[in-house]
Design a protein around this nucleic acid. Structure first.
Length: 205
DNA sequence: TTATTGGCGCTCATGGCAAC
DNA sequence: GTTGCCATGAGCGCCAATAA
């Protein structure tokens, strides 16, 4: 049986997604949560086949939540649901590793179509995303490993290497080494420039 | 004012592990 | 065997605080 998590702070939209899932994945065990913390807690309880994640939750704003989940649970397909459906937002969501993008304005039939395709292993978006060449920073961020992504988020939060190391349970030397890799992939010279680049993670939807 | 010290950021080299 | 990722240690440079 599929285990699917719906993370959205709007009960009505969670219900709408639940209805779509009932048709796209009959028999699936659907868990609902209004927060990113709830989604993470559910992800930590066991294998999850799909996560539907709102970009704007009470404890998460923008792409940082998506990037964090992708970093901690890289094997779990994440579908972004958002009130925004412009090409740039969709492009960034897919660049950050989303398996699909469902706008909140979508009809129930469209949601079912999208979820069916995504559960079949396909990538689904309402419009053709803009070429990644127009978003070099997002493209580069998308090449980061899960660990590098976590460290970049820590940088963006203004944390010291020592603090990030404590958070991740590794030594400071490890953080430093990963940072070197982050700088190379992002094409920057230091943490300040990396933080500027990482602001793409927090773009509002 | 100058030298010392400690914190911090960063690079390089190396090894372990898993996947292909 | 090769490749990619992760982790670590060693060492260097910069900067601010402190003592002489």
């Amino acid at each position: 049986m599929d285990r699917i998590i719906v993370a959205d702070d709007h009960p009505l939209f969670r219900a709408a997604l639940g209805s779509a899932l009932a048709r796209a994945a009959p028999g699936a065990a659907v868990e609902e949560t209004p927060s990113l913390a709830g989604a993470r807690e559910a992800l930590g309880r066991g294998p999850v086949d799909l996560l539907l994640l709102d970009l704007r939750l009470s404890d998460s704003e923008g792409f940082a939540g998506l990037a964090g989940v992708r970093g901690d649970f890289p094997a779990v397909p994440v579908v972004v649901v958002s009130a925004s459906e412009d090409a740039a937002t969709i492009t960034r969501a897919l660049a950050f590793g989303a398996a699909g993008f469902i706008p909140k304005s979508a009809t129930l039939e469209v949601m079912v179509e999208a979820l069916t395709a995504i559960l079949a292993g396909e990538t689904w978006a309402p419009v053709v995303p803009a070429p990644l060449d127009s978003e070099p920073i997002e493209q580069r961020i998308a090449t980061l490993t899960p660990s590098q992504l976590k460290i970049l988020i820590g940088l963006q939060q203004g944390r010291l290497n020592k603090q990030i190391a404590f958070d991740l349970g590794v030594t400071e030397a490890t953080i430093k080494a990963h940072l070197t890799g982050v700088f190379r992939k992002l094409g920057v010279q230091n943490r300040t420039q990396a933080v500027i680049a990482a602001r793409a993670l927090s773009l509002e939807t």
